[in-house]
Computed example of a mutant assay.
Amino acid sequence: MAANSQQKARLRRSLAARDGQQCFYCKSGFVDLADATIDHLIPKSILPGWRQYNLVLACRPCNNAKADTLPQVFIPRAEAVQTRREASRRRTGLGRTSPRGRLALAA
């Protein structure tokens, strides 16, 4: 049984409290939890249902890329993407943190 929008909002808050307000796979942070998707760690085709132990927050690109694969297959690919993203941020200066702890964009 799929959760309705209010249940999903509650679930997102609960998952963010458990795992942090970031994508489980690439570790990108969510400014707004409404941007997070709820992913079934073990695909619904294998483990149906909405049990919290099988749910994680994911950014839309990671959720779409993972699709119906098992986490053991997808996570190494997501870690490689995160490593490339961090290297790109270092090269371009994007993603620096300002003295107040806010994300600062390069000018």
Rank of each mutant, 00 (worst) to 15 (best):
I46V: 14
I75S: 05
Q52I: 12
L11V: 09
P48G: 03
L11E: 09
F24T: 02
L15E: 03
I42A: 07
W50Y: 13
T69F: 08
I75V: 12
A65Y: 02
R13K: 14
R18H: 09
G29S: 13
C59G: 05
R60S: 14
V31A: 14
P76E: 04
S45F: 08
K66N: 05
L70Q: 08
R60T: 15
R13C: 10
L41E: 08
R12I: 06
L33Y: 05
N63L: 05
L15D: 01
A9L: 12
I38T: 07
S28P: 08
I38R: 04
D35P: 05
P61H: 02
W50L: 10
L15H: 01
K66A: 00
A65H: 02
P76Y: 08
R10P: 01
S28N: 15
S14H: 09
D32W: 08
D68V: 12
Q72C: 10
Q22V: 11
K8P: 01
D32M: 07
G49V: 11
P71E: 03
G29E: 11
L33R: 06
C26A: 00
C59V: 06
F30H: 02
W50M: 14
Y25Q: 03
R60Q: 15
F30C: 02
R13I: 09
N54K: 05
Q72K: 11
G29R: 11
V73M: 10
R13N: 09
Y53E: 15
L57I: 01
N54M: 08
V73Q: 12
G49F: 12
R51L: 14
R12N: 01
L11K: 10
D19N: 07
L55V: 01
D32Y: 11
Q22R: 15
D68G: 09
R12K: 11
G29K: 11
K66E: 01
L11R: 13
